[in-house]
């Protein structure tokens, strides 16, 4: 058993290598086809000739492409994403600085979407073919059709402007806790700062909900389908015939299997979140990586855009790796 897991993990890690190389190659390629001079894209339109020459030397742009790519690989392995000349900081520092805010938002959004999507999906599956089922399916399709750009603004208009919810930033600066984990909700609690906690909670609620609602629509549909599939399966019929009590049947047999797609979603959620995240953080002035990308696009700061794309793709690949390993534990069928 342990050996097979190691084997599996090893094979899976091997698969990651070409993917990561591919991602790096694409980003490298894109940065070299930038219209005009890549250095101008890096330095911004107001670059002086001396600065341009300096940066060409510094980045090794006068060498051939192959050498450039190899050097570039080395940098990325050391998590060195270069320097933003426009914001005048190391891209790595920027990214790590903004990471906790995005992580916190994603985690809260994820919890919310499970709270909304999972029970509704289960209920729909149990009441298949009734109006409850129809209602959940309608909610589901509305959920997945909801554009984040719009949902975020509607929530902000209704809750932020008309109901006076605090919007923007993660916490009132006066209530800000000392940085321990970087997660406001945890740091305030560690300090026993209840007011700070409540303020942070209120501020995270709307952006998290904006990310969570479309996802919960998807989750609802997935859970419903997989539950229905399981409920109609042979082994549930057998269990029924063996007069396994209904509760045990539902929770131990059916639900457990139905949770498999939920775990998948948890990992793949990242692609969705990254998309929604850029928009949501922009709308709610949330100081995470998404907002950083938006700022970088506005400033045409290609170093930051490039760094963020690589960074997020790496996280994404990692998350999927973890999900695959989790799968291995949850779904016995994969072991074969």
């Amino acid at each position: 058993m342990a050996r097979s897991i190691l084997n599996y993990l090893f094979m899976r890690l091997l698969q990651v290598i070409p993917t990561v190389l591919g991602v790096l190659f694409i980003v490298f390629f894109l940065s070299r086809i930038l219209p005009g001079n890549p250095v101008i894209a890096i330095l911004g339109p107001k670059a002086t000739p001396e600065n341009i020459e300096k940066v060409v030397k510094e980045l090794g742009l006068d060498k051939d492409y192959f050498t450039q790519f190899i050097e570039y690989l080395g940098d990325v392995i050391r998590l060195d994403f270069g320097r933003s000349y426009i914001m005048n900081v190391e891209v790595r520092d920027l990214l790590f600085d903004r990471l906790p805010a995005s992580f916190e938002l994603v985690i809260v959004a994820y919890i919310l979407s499970i709270i909304i999507g999972l029970p509704l999906g289960i209920i729909a599956a149990l009441k298949r073919g009734t109006w409850v089922d129809d209602l959940v399916r309608i909610l589901g399709v509305i959920g997945i059709s909801m554009p984040t750009i719009w949902l975020g603004m509607v929530l902000q208009i209704v809750f932020g402007i008309y109901l006076g919810f605090p919007v923007g930033e993660r916490i009132d600066p006066l209530l800000a806790p000392k940085k321990v984990t970087g997660f406001m909700l945890i740091d305030t609690l560690l300090e026993g700062n209840i007011y700070g906690f409540l303020d942070a909670l209120k501020r995270i609620a709307l952006p998290a909900l904006t990310l969570a609602l479309p996802l919960s629509g998807l989750l609802m549909r997935l859970v419903r389908t997989s539950m229905v599939e399981v409920l109609l399966s042979d082994y549930i019929r057998t269990a029924k015939m063996k007069r396994v009590p209904r509760d045990v049947l539902l929770y131990r047999h059916a639900l457990k299997n139905a949770l498999i797609p939920v775990v998948t979603v948890m990992g793949l959620y990242f692609a969705v979140v990254v998309t929604g995240d850029i928009i949501v953080e922009t709308i709610f002035s949330w100081p995470g990586i998404g907002r950083l990308i938006y700022e970088a696009v506005l400033l045409r700061d290609y170093m930051v855009i490039q760094g963020a794309v690589i960074f997020i793709s790496l996280i994404y690949v990692l998350v999927n790796l973890v999900v695959d390993v989790l799968y291995f534990y949850i779904d016995p069928r994969i072991k074969a």
Binding site: G22, V23, A271, T275, S313
Partner: peptide, 24 residues
């Protein structure tokens, strides 16, 4: 298919941003 795998393993919108930012 390896190329497709790589494309699919970058969060789509991020890649779209990188491409759109590079092209203008």
């Amino acid at each position: 298919m390896r190329i497709m795998d790589v494309l699919i393993s970058i969060p789509g919108f991020m890649l779209a941003i990188a491409v759109a930012a590079a092209l203008g």
